[in-house]
Design a protein around this nucleic acid. Structure first.
Lengths: 331, 331
DNA sequence: CTGTTAGCGCGTTCAT
DNA sequence: ATGAACGCGCTAACAG
């Protein structure tokens, strides 16, 4: 492993000249430059970035905290982050937390120990999330209401309210919900929107219409059991993400229901797959990649010490109507 | 930012003692340890890992080169890699190459500049992939036949052959293929298996039955146009991955075909979603997470300088029969 | 068990 | 335009 010293000897110049040739070539004479370049080529010299980082006290690296790397929504956000990081010359460290706070803490300590310069957290804030804001620069992507640090998010409440209103407008009066875990902030916000829509339509809230899932396809499928057992089944189900909606579709079909005639289903996220399922999914399209880009831009501003004009960005969503929703059957 | 020197002053001991207290506490007296611990707590000291890495000449970091981070198959492999890396105390840098060789080269140089200790490449080897093996420690996950460096893979040829044989055994005689790009090594290997099965059954190869896709759902859907225009359509289609199979299902359904009665479809990979589509997908289940784990274990051996007993691991696949295949309609 | 010393590879003064 | 010298924070000898 050739070092800068080896190059300087080979080129017959000082270390400082080699260093300058690399970082500020305009400050080096033509001949000097040539000698250095030749020596570098001959020795196959590559600067030791570990040393540079140490010297410059910057890791040029950010950590992305993701609860589940095999979740399509998250990976799309990550792609947006990657795009911006790339432009800035930063690397992205993968922090696959798997909902373990121990693992999360370990990744956070990467910043505290200078192995990374900042964090983007891809899960809604909860009070136990314990990001030590005083020692760590962080941005929350896909946040919720009341996130106490910089965040890029959508308006979950309004989005869920709009979906519910749409279902009501089709003539549904009993609208079921397959929610995420009840204490998940996304669940909380979306449930709030659902209730608001019911309220405005003077439809009483019925707890029996809520089935708690955990954002997985399996839990969506599983929830259909609950609804099928009801004597007065809902005619439409609002699912709090696309995965659960896909699971629900599978579940209802297995029971012999015709979709969407017997049951309207809506999702949330608009994964690419949702266009291809049968029936294709009516859902809320989140600008996942944009969320990633915006979060990264915000984080880099913070890292550079710029005080951003806003610390909360609410990105617009788009409600996409496809085949999985229709009016209720006439009794 | 407190340094080790600050701690040593605060504790009234030498720098070396602090260092030892951290890395080899058994070599420090109880009182010394206590003093150091108190000082650390008081100063909120966190060791500068950038410095440690520099000193130890190891980044404790590996790069995962992935063509597309929003591909479910890849992310599952990554999860396996992450698990093992975590155990080893290594971090995972995300190298989202997006099939750009420029980007790929940049990530490779992370190793050459000591920012990472090794690479796992999640795409089949091609001669242009240009991994400089002499200067970079690397493992290829999801490789193909004839990969010239350590690799963990499945037997694509046999797997595709088995799928084809299964379709033939159901009575299909015209079996179509939706392939990946024709020069993609996965496509090549799987096509080889397809042809072998035809050969053994004495069925002549018909180029008209091959439609070239690019492993995306969209290309799968698009390929159905080709088959629908044929006067003698195939009765079964082997898709070279699940995404294209899902796209194909959508396409055929739109044309009014009944699945699987009018057309049997098979996939490859066994994504989680494939269990939930309609009809659920008959496919080849790859041990994606295992592939990731095995690759990482192999890479760490290489990093540690251990000469592994094998440099090629072929992991078993499982053929999963679900609803998307049946015998051809009687004429 | 402890402290002193000498670098790791690089960038950056400050002279020349 | 160039070089000598210092130090970033830490670990690993060595000597005591």
């Amino acid at each position: 492993m050739a070092t800068i010293r080896d190059v300087s000897k080979e080129a017959g110049v000082s270390i400082a000249t080699v260093s300058r040739a690399l970082s500020a070539p305009e400050k080096v004479s033509k001949v000097g430059l040539k000698k250095v370049e030749d020596a570098i080529a001959k020795l196959h010299y590559k600067p030791n970035m570990l040393s540079q980082k140490f010297r410059n006290k910057t890791a040029n690296c950010i950590v992305v905290l993701v609860p589940d790397i095999s979740n399509l929504f998250f990976t799309t956000v990550i792609r947006g982050i990657e795009t911006v990081a790339q432009k800035k010359g930063f690397n992205v460290l993968l922090g696959d937390t798997r909902d373990s706070s121990t693992r999360e803490k370990n990744f956070i300590s990467l910043v505290e120990t200078r192995q990374a310069d900042g964090i983007i957290q891809l899960r809604p804030y909860t009070s136990d999330s314990a990001l030590p804001m005083e020692s760590v620069i962080a941005v929350n992507a896909s946040g919720c209401e009341n996130t106490p640090y910089p965040t890029v998010r959508i308006d979950n409440v309004t989005a869920a309210k709009d979906v519910t209103k749409y279902l009501l407008s089709l003539g549904h009066t009993r609208v079921g919900v397959i929610s995420g875990l009840h204490d998940n902030p996304h669940s909380v916000d979306r449930m709030k929107g659902y209730k608001q829509a019911l309220d405005e339509a003077n439809i009483p809230f019925d707890a029996a219409l809520i089935s708690e899932g955990d954002f997985t396809m399996w839990s969506g499928l599983n929830s259909t059991e609950h609804f099928m057992r009801m004597s007065d089944m809902p005619t439409a189900i609002l699912c709090m993400n696309d995965e659960m909606a896909i699971g629900a579709i599978k579940g209802f079909r297995r029971k012999g229901l015709k979709l969407p005639e017997d049951m309207s289903i809506t999702g949330f996220d608009d994964l690419e797959i949702s266009r291809y399922c049968e029936p294709s999914l009516t859902t809320v399209s989140q600008p996942a990649e944009k969320v990633g880009e915006k979060s990264a831009e915000l984080l880099f501003k913070l890292i550079e010490g710029v005080v951003p004009s806003q610390t909360e960005y609410i990105l617009p969503v788009e409600f996409v109507i496809r085949e999985s929703t229709t009016g209720p059957r006439k009794q």
